[in-house]
Amino acid sequence: MKLVTAIIQSDKLDAVREALFDAEITRITVSRVVGHGRQENEEIYRGQKVVPNLIPKVRLDIACNDQFVEIAVDAILRSAKHGNGQIGDGKIFITPIEECIRIRTEERGGTAI
């Protein structure tokens, strides 16, 4: 079991969700996050240009069995890029999951995902 964590641009959320859905990955958790990257995001307040040091992004957490990891990653790579890829498009982290438990049935392991 692996946890695929993707940090993406907020305007690509719909596209990524659709791509994941098409790849039959439907169980995801989405949250709004802010962070540092190489991207600079300029905003204007009363004529003064401001570059906030923290930029809003969207984070997707997808827990899946090993054979689905590449499918999920491919779907995200296909859908989260602006054009052929730009600074700020985001990152994907893959981490191992020690255990997964479904609360309702108390199932454990791969079947619980």
Binding site: Q9, S10, A15, V34, E43, L54
Partner: peptide, 20 residues
Amino acid sequence: MAGMDHSLHGETGYGLINVG
């Protein structure tokens, strides 16, 4: 897709979303 606030006006409506 980015939203009118950012792409047209260069602002965001709700500060609460940003931690910083």
